[in-house]
């Protein structure tokens, strides 16, 4: 089974603020990490490859620095990484992002098609949980989200269990297919020191793709131009006017809180 896992580099800290005076975004530090939800998808993919053989590759979209998350996945056990990087993709919304990743996957698949594409539940910076489903649509694949587990049937179909709210659903899909793994469904393995050492001896772990590699070369389908949604304005979250501030020592505060809850008849 040839598996492709979609991953993303996200900021380590979510302490982005907007200066209320100037409207300027302030981001603390430039540290980044792999989106934590992608680790579960990666672990699911690595276990499937161990069980059924085949390959596992990873793909991400972002600036050159996003190679770091591809390498982290390679240290965990991925065979190869693809970085989709092009300034013409800047400002992409969900639709343009999904279309870009789908175009890249289609371009790679002309050489080596994939049986299974795995995504995480959502990212911790965009928090939309929509790219996986849109990607499945652009690639014309059946898909399920909130996937708890997956296995191959004797006939070579994919059986997956998903938790859709309170509904536990087991479905059988023909391959190729796309699954979005739920969070906390497994314990992601750590990057291996041995693989990290071995990786130094080779430099061809990552392939970089740009618009020039895609079948659809029309730049209006990508980035800001290919995005039907537009951010009209960004602004700091509203503040509640005139809240009551309690101050004092810890002991006084605890007592004030007790009195407050009594007054409000919560206790």
């Amino acid at each position: 089974m040839n598996i492709l896992v979609c991953i993303k580099q996200v900021p380590s800290s979510s302490n982005v603020k907007v200066d209320p005076e100037t409207g300027v975004l302030i981001r603390d530090g430039a540290q980044s990490k792999m989106n934590p939800y992608d680790l579960y998808a990666l672990e699911m993919g690595l276990s499937l490859r161990e069980r059924y053989g085949g390959s596992l590759q990873v793909i991400t979209m972002g600036p050159d620095s996003a190679k770091a998350v591809l390498m982290e996945a390679i240290y965990m056990g991925a065979d190869h990484g693809y970085l989709i990087s092009d300034r013409r993709f800047a400002g992409a919304d969900v639709l343009a992002t999904s279309y870009t990743i789908a175009s890249a996957i289609a371009a790679i698949a002309t050489q080596a098609p994939f049986d299974l594409i795995l995504c995480g539940k959502q990212t911790t910076d965009g928090d939309t949980a929509q790219v996986g489903a849109e990607l499945a649509e652009f690639l014309h694949l059946p898909h399920y989200a909130n996937v708890q587990s997956a296995e191959l049937t004797k006939e070579g179909a994919l059986r997956c269990t998903c938790l859709l709210g309170r509904e536990l659903l087991t479905a059988r899909l023909t391959l190729p297919a796309l699954l979005c793994a739920d969070g906390e469904i497994n314990t992601p393995r750590l990057p291996s020191y041995r693989r990290r050492q071995a990786a130094r001896k080779r430099e061809d772990w990552i392939t970089v793709l740009s618009l020039n590699d895609f079948a659809d070369q029309d730049s209006t389908h990508y980035g800001l131009n290919g995005s039907p949604t537009q951010v009209e304005k960004i602004f700091p979250p509203e503040k509640k006017a005139g809240h009551v501030r309690l101050t004092g020592s810890g002991q006084e505060l605890g007592e004030q809180l007790y009195t407050l809850l009594q007054e409000k008849k919560f206790i």
Binding site: P237, K239, K240, H243, V244, R245, T247, S249, L253, G254
Partner: peptide, 18 residues
């Protein structure tokens, strides 16, 4: 900014006293 009541203090001390 979104709270109705702002309790500025150490959560351990507040809980203990409460």
């Amino acid at each position: 900014d979104i709270a109705h009541y702002a309790v500025v203090g150490d959560l351990y001390e507040v809980m203990e006293s409460f």
